[in-house]
Nucleic acid binder design. Structure first.
Length: 293
DNA sequence: AGCTACTCCTGGTAGC
DNA sequence: TGCTACCAGGAGTAGC
């Protein structure tokens, strides 16, 4: 599923072919993809515009538009689970899962392909008007070990749901959270306010190194969904240490990796490398022996 | 505040 | 073979 490394790869690969191209026509095959605008209103706002820049914030793609050299709004895209953006020659067949197609100058088309129809490409005057509250970029300067330690301490939540919360930290998804937690030796259910400074620093390093390595591999593809704009799968899935490896031996200690549900998300854990947190004692239990089920 | 469940979607697959 | 039931998951939302 597209998380930060995949979306960044898409942005990087689309930049060269898109910047400077003008949108000559728009075809909308799945109106909800451009909601709340209808297909016609959407077309009216993008046709005739030139793409000035291609960027990313969190898991969102940002295409800046201009008309006659003046700013003319933005396209804010989210690939969700199965979305894909690819450039094809203008006459190419759209295929069954193309939800949106922008015809570009230079005899090219940008196809938004999305089997599960969860992806979106919204038009907005400015990205801030449609982006939700987002935490810092994990590869940016605002994300330091010190910041993470303080931020974890300021909440009292299970680590995994917190790291998936885009308003806390932006860009991580199910795969890279599992990989980062394993790498840092932390259990997904550990309470954020009980993470030591040392552990927080380890988690910070794990998040950065997992994302950096995934980015170097152009992201991860373990099913038919994610492909780069050049149509190639990512390579990082071969380096997963924990994700999708339930029932197989841990690469570090050999214990069988288990899969559990955390916040309705499939979660992979090595119970030896990621010891289960001690249960927190409620106020009434203080002084009694902890009951560990 | 933080949790849980539900919704949106479809292709793939497990089970019968 | 052919059917049904369920699963995956990012994010938004509702309810407790």
């Amino acid at each position: 599923m597209p998380e930060l490394p995949e979306v960044e790869t898409v942005a990087r690969m689309l930049r060269e072919p898109l910047v400077g191209r003008r949108i000559e026509a728009a075809w909308v095959g799945w109106p909800r993809a451009v909601a709340p605008l209808g297909p016609r209103a959407f077309s009216n706002r993008v046709v005739g515009r030139t793409i000035r820049s291609v960027g990313r914030r969190a898991k969102y793609l940002l295409l800046e538009l201009e008309r006659d050299g003046l700013p003319s709004g933005w396209l804010v895209g989210h690939l969700r689970m199965s979305g894909r953006l690819q450039i094809f020659p203008a006459a190419s067949d759209r295929g069954p899962y193309c939800r949106l197609c922008l015809s570009l100058t230079g005899e090219q088309s940008l196809h938004f392909i999305d089997v599960r129809k969860f992806g979106r490409l919204r038009h907005a005057a400015r990205p801030e008007l449609v982006l939700p509250a987002l935490g810092p970029e994990p590869l940016g300067e605002g994300f330091s070990a010190q910041w993470l330690f303080q931020a974890l301490r300021g909440r009292r939540r299970q680590l995994k749901p917190l790291l998936l919360d885009q308003s806390f930290l932006a860009g991580l998804g199910n795969i890279y959270v599992d990989e980062a937690l394993f790498s840092a030796g932390l259990h997904p259910l550990a309470s954020s306010d009980r993470i030591s400074r040392r552990r927080a620093a380890a988690l910070h390093d794990s998040i950065r190194s997992v994302l950096t390595a995934a980015l170097a591999g152009n992201g991860s593809s373990f099913d038919a969904f994610y492909r780069t704009p050049e149509g190639q799968p990512g390579r990082y899935q071969d380096q997963f240490l924990i994700y999708g490896r339930d029932g197989r031996p841990c690469r570090r200690c050999g214990r069988t990796i288990v899969k559990l549900a955390v916040g309705q998300r499939g979660t992979h854990v090595c119970t030896k490398c990621q010891p289960k947190p001690r249960l927190r004692l409620s106020a009434g239990d203080r002084g009694r022996r902890p009951v560990n089920r």
